[in-house]
């Protein structure tokens, strides 16, 4: 297991234990930490994937809500970047679909050289999944879309 990375997301669920099962089945995340209270309720958990970490928790304050509790709204999405040579976006998408994810946008290669898809998990969180499949640079992006790229550091 990698050390906890400097940035990670905490994702809120009404049923976090079901989310742990879904995230393992759909995306291959591995449970690395789970803490349960005296009633067996989830108090805290962490999953790991390729050195990244997500914390999976419940609606532990009035301000923490799953999309399932607020009409499907959300304020952030979590992004999965598949390293080159570690499977494909299309295979990832099929695995997620089989596990019950709702595919919001089917796999498609974008102008910036990544192939991506988006899906919703059972509580309505959107996950974006991407993999770089072609080398491009800001000049290509501008030629294809007219978008300017004022900041670009590699």
């Amino acid at each position: 297991m990698a050390a906890h990375p400097p940035l990670s997301s905490a994702v809120v669920y009404r049923d976090p234990k079901a989310a742990l099962r879904f995230l393992e089945e759909a995306f291959g995340f591995e449970l690395t930490l789970l803490i349960e209270d005296a009633d067996g309720n989830l108090a805290h958990s962490q999953m790991s994937w390729n050195g990244g970490v997500v914390m999976v928790g419940n609606e532990w304050t009035d301000q923490h809500r799953s999309p399932a509790s607020i009409g499907g709204l959300m304020t952030q999405t979590v992004h999965i970047q598949i390293p080159e040579g570690e499977g494909t976006v299309d295979a990832h998408c099929e695995r997620a679909r089989k596990a019950g994810a709702v595919i919001v946008a089917e796999p498609e290669t974008q102008f910036y050289g990544d192939r991506t898809y988006r899906c919703k998990d059972p509580e309505g969180h959107v996950w974006t999944v991407s993999q770089t499949v072609a080398a491009t640079d800001p000049a290509d992006w501008e030629a294809k879309t007219g978008l300017k790229t004022p900041v670009f550091r590699t």
């Binding site: 591995e30 690395t32 930490l33 789970l34 803490i35 349960e36 209270d37 005296a38 067996g40």
Partner: peptide, 11 residues
């Protein structure tokens, strides 16, 4: 024994 701490690591 209901409360649990679960920790996992690949070796």
């Amino acid at each position: 024994m209901a409360s649990r701490v679960v920790v996992a690591l690949r070796v």
